[in-house]
Write a protein that binds this DNA or RNA. Structure first.
Lengths: 204, 204, 204, 204
DNA sequence: CATGAATGAGATTTCATTCAT
DNA sequence: TATGAATGAAATCTCATTCAT
């Protein structure tokens, strides 16, 4: 029973709560992965047909697992948020809280670099995203909160920062990285500058 | 010498260089403003029909002034970039170079707060934006460069920063602000944190 | 009082029967000529805007002279039919009736080679073309009838041919010429073969 | 070995070469037939919507089978050309080569009587029609070439005629027939006259 | 009168979603 | 259950026609 399973990655009630057949579960995973890739590459306006093609299934199969395109997008986000939350929890006991936090921030940005979906969704998160995503989002928030508190305790982050700001800064850094596009040096410098804003006092 | 002529804000040569008739110019401006609002509120996938409705004109009028939707989007950007560049040039001789730069940065973010179009386009700028937008973008770049150099001369900005990074950071700050959405306090704090990354040494 | 004037080349009643001002008459002629060219080059689906551009006037002017696009097309045809009828009448007293007819036939085809409009209209003529065009058409029919009768009297055309067939054959020859397109040799041979069908001789 | 496969009547590779499902094949045929009828009745500017209506399917279905209107028109032509080529080949061994050719010519004209599409396309054929149509056109050309040579061998057609002229003459006869419209007698006589031009005999 | 900007119905094309196979 | 064909609403764009300048 991984946290991922626990937080509703199944489309609710599509088959009345019965566990999915092995092949169905496999198809579901392939669709999810394909959707992640395609949304990342072409934005959320990419067609369902293309996702199906990439997943090697028919469109009908996509809609069997995710009743609407919106639901598919949310499932992609739940998946991502869930993974990130899990990774954050794994860092909660790290010996060096400062580097633990900053490494995690860079990890998120690296993941999102060309993946506008992720931050798009985070941006809308407070407004209209469904409960399921919101719940996994709270998991992530909470894990991040722990990392932040510990980093502040270690003097690696300014005291006047709270988790909300950190998330906003992550969103910003991801977008800056996306903007920097094909220039990896510029990307690295811009992200570094943004995260430096979180650090206290004189720069290391 | 209207600012409009000077900053190239017109679609080039749609009617062979003749000046627009009074009513046409009025409608063009209304369409542009409506497009800016609608793109900002609903993203670039908002329909042309809605823009026409908001501008109080028929769709045909929109297409008369801007032959494709893409052209309309570009005109919106040219307009924005042009205005920003003009403002940046206006600050070039300001007595306090540090505040001049930071005020300008905040100004851009304030303008873009809920207007993803702007940074969306900046993000694509290096890749596929047309020459006209690119040109106005270069004007902005150059004006920003001046402000940055003077702020560094005044010790208000780290010496290892270049204009490219500043633009990436602006993009990031704009997106962070957009994310912060309805919480103005969070918005202000997140943007402040991000721009603090540009400042040298110990934080004020 | 040319036949051209006589057969209704003016749009009926656009200005209550008053004679057109000199500049208006000039514009009307330019529009007519431009329409002929443009319809010929691009087919009847060419836009009114393009015709206006070619005529060097505004669209409004086109519509002032010809209340609908259909009316403009008809005026073009009336013009053409009228000119042809006039030329046919001029040949009525020619010393060699056979060559007179065949030269006239080739003349029509040469004129129509790339001008589908003309034969398009002839094709619809029996069905739905307006009275004005029909009237000028009858003029042409009658002039052609004279040429045909004389050519048959001279033994240059089969006796079992009537004017209706000749017109149909003209339409066919024009289209064959149009088909032959860029190959002038093929064009000449095909048209010659078709008109040879009108000549007397042993038929298997 | 269906004639359909053999004569390339299918849109190539729209679904990766897999055979169409039964219902899809049925719909495709209905669309093609409806398009043929509608194009014939109203010309190529008839709307896709009307074709869909006539076929009893949604517009989407038309576009699934034929990605553009142009593609649909071409498919109609390929269908027709293919059928004609097949029929021509069927006549290649006929005992009386003269009548075989002339019967075939009349057959084409009868088919095209009210169907301007066919000759419209033939007219443009040398210029811009796509490869697929051109290929089927070559098949037709080649079959016709055989018929012609044999008819000339039998002394039923002038020796100075080549296949190119025959095709041009067919186009002309079809248009003459179309022109003759509602008068079947006139139609028959005009077509006969035109084809008589192909027969041998004294030419003045 | 001339102009060309504005209009809006209609054309082509796309795509999320449904449903027969 | 999986498939992909069918659907039709909606989007972009065109153009004959009207009307303010």
């Amino acid at each position: 029973m991984t946290p991922i399973r626990r937080y509703g990655l199944e489309t609710p009630d599509v088959n009345g709560g019965k566990p999915l057949r092995a092949d169905a579960r496999r198809n579901r995973a392939r669709v999810l992965e394909a959707a992640d890739d395609v949304f990342a590459a072409k934005g959320v306006s990419a067609s369902t047909e293309e996702i199906a093609r990439r997943a090697g299934v028919g469109v009908g199969t996509v809609f069997r697992h995710f009743p609407t395109k919106e639901a598919l997008l949310q499932a992609v986000l739940v998946e991502r948020f869930g993974r990130l939350a899990e990774q954050a929890r794994g860092l909660a006991g790290a010996p060096a809280p400062g580097p633990a936090l900053f490494d995690f921030l860079h990890h998120i940005v690296a993941q999102s670099a060309t993946k506008n979906v992720f931050t798009d969704a985070l941006t809308k998160a407070g407004v209209e995203v469904e409960e399921m995503v919101a719940e996994v989002g709270r998991e992530l928030w909470s894990a991040l909160d722990t990392l932040l508190t510990r980093a502040q305790g270690a003097g690696a982050v300014r005291d006047d920062i709270r988790t909300g700001e950190v998330i906003a800064v992550i969103v910003g850094a991801s977008r800056a990285a996306e903007y920097a596009g094909r220039d990896p040096d510029l990307q690295a410098r811009a992200v570094a500058v943004i995260f430096d804003g979180l650090r206290p006092g004189p720069r290391p």
